[in-house]
Simulated scan of single mutants.
Amino acid sequence: MKEFLPKLIPNTIMFLVITVFISIFKSVFGEINSSVGVTIVVALLVLMQKDLTKKPIENFLKLLTINVFLGIVSHISYGNMWIGIVLNFITLGLIGYLLTKDLNKSIILPYGLQYLFMLYKPVQGIDFTNRMIALIFGAVLIMASQYIVHSSKKEANAVGEVEDRNKLEAEICVAKYDNDEYKKFRLFEKDIYIHKKRALYAIKLGALTSITAFVTQYLGLAQGAWMSYTIFSLTEIYSEDTKVRSKKRVEGTMIGGLIVIISFLVLKDDTSRTLIILLAGYLNPFFKDYKHIIILVTISSVAPLALSHGSIFAVGQRLMFVIIGAILALIVDKLIYVTKHEDNFNKMASIKI
């Protein structure tokens, strides 16, 4: 309880702000584009840890380009599933490689999910126009929030610039002494260095998501998107992370599904059942362990389906596709690449500067 109390007020305020924002977003851009609003909020919160106001025009153009690119490519990919195999592989691969420079998935989370949400919720006509406007609005909102948060931190920014330079120098040193991490290619008379771990991670992510997206569309699997969501979540740079998260994902889905079934047996009216969805969404920020988060995410996503299709059917569908996704992630992780955190630490420890 002591761990929860300090978070109570800020998390409650955050929940209310996000709820109001999503409600306004849906009323402006349409219900079908509400998931775009969710990923915009996630991107805003993740990027808040960085100061993008140092190069405002350059960073805004990057955000704008990413959003517009993902919106257009996801539209084309769903329109032709055969072309989609290639486009999905390239797009998720680029996201997996370009946004993991620090060897973690924090930045690719909102953009990878944004692409998958748009891919599995295709729109046409005015809804597509609204989606593109929403994506442009998202880039503007993120940069505006950057100025609000970082404008009063001039001194901190100066310190941050020094830290950034030190970090860059350290990365250069690591690249210089740890050549095994990079593969050099010669292209158009230029030397290009590809980070091996990030490249292999990008290949795994792109291959798995493109294949499952094709199978889902080809077979017309109504809930097949959860295979791709699961694979995106479980595919990691380091193998032990994939194994641990896969176990927690399946366990969390089973527990969350069981909670939905029991709750729906006890609570018969839709109002009470809807409150369960809101409660799960509210409690999410209070937990850090992946298993606990998946329990709440499962409740939030399965319960709406259960309202119209029945709780057992909804839970069964979700669990089946999550298990399939976890198995695929583990198989491909084993076949394509196996590495451990310790491998990286040992190499870093051996560097003499």
Rank of each mutant, 00 (worst) to 15 (best):
F4A: 10
I9P: 03
T12H: 06
I22S: 03
I22P: 10
I24T: 01
F25E: 00
V28L: 10
V28W: 10
F29D: 00
G30R: 10
G30W: 14
I32S: 04
I32P: 00
N33H: 12
S34F: 05
S35D: 12
G37E: 00
V38F: 14
V41P: 06
A43N: 07
L44R: 00
L45R: 10
M48S: 12
Q49P: 01
D51M: 11
T53N: 11
P56V: 05
I57S: 13
E58N: 06
F60K: 06
F60G: 04
L61W: 08
V68R: 05
S77V: 01
S77L: 02
I85R: 02
N88M: 03
F89C: 01
L94T: 01
I95V: 14
L98V: 09
K101L: 08
K101F: 04
L103R: 14
N104F: 02
I107Q: 04
G112K: 06
F117A: 03
K121Y: 12
V123T: 15
N130G: 02
G138F: 06
A139F: 03
V140H: 15
M143E: 01
S145K: 11
S145F: 15
Q146Y: 01
Y147F: 15
H150V: 02
H150A: 05
S152F: 14
K153T: 10
K153R: 15
A156F: 09
N157Q: 14
G160F: 03
V162R: 13
D164H: 14
E171V: 15
A175N: 08
N179P: 01
D180E: 13
L187Q: 03
F188I: 07
F188C: 05
E189H: 10
K197H: 11
R198M: 12
A199G: 14
Y201E: 00
A202R: 00
I211E: 02
F214Y: 13
Q217W: 12
L221C: 07
A222S: 10
A222V: 07
A222D: 14
Q223V: 07
W226M: 06
W226L: 02
M227S: 13
I237C: 08
I237M: 13
Y238E: 01
E240D: 11
K243P: 06
R245K: 15
R245F: 11
K248C: 03
R249K: 15
R249Y: 13
V250Y: 09
G256A: 07
G256S: 10
G257M: 02
V260A: 04
I261M: 10
S263Q: 05
L265D: 08
L267G: 07
D269Y: 11
S272Q: 11
S272R: 08
I277P: 08
A280N: 09
Y282Q: 01
L283C: 05
K288Q: 12
K291N: 15
I294S: 02
I294A: 03
T298H: 02
I299T: 11
I299F: 07
A306M: 01
L307A: 04
S308V: 12
F313W: 11
R318K: 08
L319T: 08
L319P: 04
F321D: 01
L328F: 12
L330F: 09
V332A: 14
V338H: 07
H341M: 13
H341N: 09
E342F: 02
D343I: 14
D343Q: 10
N346I: 13
K347P: 08
K352N: 08
K352S: 07
I353K: 09
